[in-house]
Simulated assay, not measured.
Amino acid sequence: MTGSTAPDRAYIDTLKRHFGDLRDGTHGGARQRGEKEELFEAAAKLLDPHARMVLTELDHGMLLDSGRVEANGPRRTSDGGMAATWALTWPEQQKAGIRPVSLIAHYGAGFHHPHLRGATVSEWPLNVFTDEQARGEIPMMRAIAAGDLHNLVFQRDYRIVPAIVGDV
């Protein structure tokens, strides 16, 4: 399936690829689990600079550069699937004992194909095969990261966000 290149329509193209794969019983043309895992590993590498950028933006804008972006993966998970994780930690979050803001690409052992999620926000199809498609996921990753931060504030309170403390 061909798609538009406009960033504001990237989510439409992602959904078309996702639903087409469901229809065809494939993931990016692959039918076997091993081939799908190779595509997942490539997708995680394509997402890496964009995921780091999104979390760095959130760190700068909301955490006053007090956070740290950490990444790992892709690696095998305990259920036999695969995952790649980008996490934004900061002192207030760690002190509160809550999860970091996260972007998680995962391909569960029983899944037909991979998905993208946050620590508290889930699931978005992960059908990324080119750098252009990875860049097209930036708005979705921003939404996931913002949703995670919002949900983490609900788990504790606004004081975990340095940009808000003292501004109220």
Rank of each mutant, 00 (worst) to 15 (best):
L126D: 04
H150G: 09
A96F: 03
L58M: 15
W86G: 05
G61M: 08
A42L: 10
F40M: 00
I160Y: 10
P74Y: 02
G108T: 05
A30Y: 05
K95I: 14
D167K: 04
G147K: 00
P7L: 15
G97W: 05
G3F: 10
T120Q: 13
V153R: 09
G108H: 08
G29N: 07
D131S: 08
S4I: 09
D167F: 01
R135L: 12
E41W: 01
G29V: 06
L55A: 10
A10H: 09
A96I: 05
T26S: 12
L88K: 09
H115M: 05
P49F: 08
M62N: 08
R9D: 15
F111D: 15
T89I: 05
M53W: 12
V101K: 06
H150L: 11
A43W: 07
H60C: 07
P114I: 00
H115I: 00
L152C: 08
T14S: 12
P74H: 03
G81K: 03
L46K: 11
H18L: 02
W86V: 01
K45T: 11
T2M: 11
H27I: 03
A43K: 06
L152N: 08
V153L: 06
P7F: 10
D24E: 14
S122Y: 14
A146W: 02
S66W: 01
D48N: 12
G166S: 05
S66E: 15
H150Y: 13
D148Y: 04
P49T: 08
G29C: 06
R159L: 11
M53V: 03
A146N: 08
R142N: 10
H106R: 10
M53H: 14
A105D: 01
I104S: 07
P49L: 08
F129P: 06
R117K: 14
P74S: 02
A51H: 06
G80D: 12
A96L: 03
H112L: 13
D167S: 07
L88R: 08
H113P: 00
K45W: 05
Q32R: 09
T77H: 04
S78V: 13
E37T: 03
R135G: 11
G110E: 13
L47H: 02
G28R: 05
T85D: 14
V165F: 03
L64P: 01
